[in-house]
């Protein structure tokens, strides 16, 4: 069926009347305006990310399934009173941000580096900083899709969020900077296969130990102090402070994330190899 359909399409394309003007290669060099280049690159990257089945599984399917399963059944006891969904929704927003900004970006960029895509892009008028900005926009765009989808599921399951959207956005942007910096640090120094394995492994570790699905009160207090300093924990704690408990600007968690973001981005910028 598919083969027939595509053959028909090709036939139709060839049969269509074409302008007779011959192609001229007369030079007319010049870069597009930098905003247009960045917008085009970001849209291109979003298309590629959403088309990749492994990425979709990681960024959309797994967080959505966890939302439905954990919030509906009491698989794991939660902290104190309140509805399970109010605990899980912020945690799974954290998982979604982690999956896109860290795991997805690291694996995608690692393979781009291996396939020479970054090298080829280096020969186009798009400057390197423009490519980084486009990747950041792509990650934020996919995160917006994830959070919209997860919010819809959570609301359907009776979630009642509190707090102000600005605090949520600030936490998400700082966490994105941190995770993207760590992801690029990995993608820019390790082989693509090593990045693939390690990024997934770290994702699972942080899912387990970062207050995403398992309440931190389940861990011994010594371990808990270490876990509290992780960026994923700062994100999930901060999101719960706002969305579950109605806080505005949870400064401690914002501070932890800001420190991580600066360190991670600086480390990535110093070590990244383009080829």
């Amino acid at each position: 069926m598919t083969a027939t359909a595509s053959a028909d399409e090709t036939g139709a394309m060839n049969a269509a009347p074409r302008p007779a003007a011959p192609l001229s290669f007369t030079p007319a060099p010049g870069a597009a305006p930098v905003r247009r280049m960045i917008a085009a690159q970001a849209a291109h990257e979003v298309r590629l990310m959403l088309r990749n089945p492994e990425q979709l599984l990681l960024t959309i399917v797994i967080p959505a399934l966890m939302m439905v399963l954990f919030s509906g059944e009491s698989l794991i006891a939660t902290d104190g009173p309140g509805k399970r969904i109010d605990f899980y929704a912020p945690g799974l927003f954290g998982a979604a941000v982690l999956s896109t900004a860290f795991t997805g970006l690291a694996i995608g960029t690692g393979f781009e580096r291996r396939y020479g895509v970054l090298k080829r892009m280096g020969a186009t008028p798009l400057p390197r900083w423009g490519l980084i900005v486009a990747k950041a926009l792509c990650v934020l765009c996919v995160e917006a899709i994830q959070i919209a989808l997860l919010s819809a599921i959570a609301l359907a399951m009776g979630w009642h969020p509190h707090g102000d959207p600005f605090s949520v956005a600030l936490l998400v942007v700082l966490a994105t900077g941190t995770f993207a910096g760590l992801g690029m640090l990995m993608a820019g120094t390790l082989r693509a296969e090593a990045t693939l394995g390690l990024a997934n492994f770290v994702f699972l570790l942080l899912l387990a130990g970062g207050g995403v699905i398992i309440p931190l009160s389940k861990f011994p207090s010594g371990v808990r102090h270490v876990l509290d300093a992780l960026p994923i924990t700062a994100l999930t704690n901060g999101l719960r402070d706002v969305l579950q408990h109605g806080a505005t600007l949870p400064w401690a968690n914002v501070g932890i994330l800001a420190a991580w973001a600066v360190a991670a981005i600086a480390a990535a910028a110093r070590t990244f190899k383009w080829e």
């Binding site: 007319a28 060099p29 010049g30 870069a31 597009a32 247009r36 280049m37 085009a40 690159q41 291109h44 298309r47 590629l48 088309r51 990749n52 393979f111 781009e112 396939y115 020479g116 895509v117 090298k119 080829r120 020969a123 186009t124 008028p125 798009l126």
Partner: peptide, 24 residues
């Protein structure tokens, strides 16, 4: 380039149209 530099899952025409958008 001597080899590739193109992501394996990108479609041929899509890649060309995208690259075209980077030029004036």
């Amino acid at each position: 380039l001597q080899s590739g530099g193109i992501y394996p899952t990108v479609r041929a025409v899509e890649m060309l149209k995208h690259t075209a958008k980077l030029y004036a």
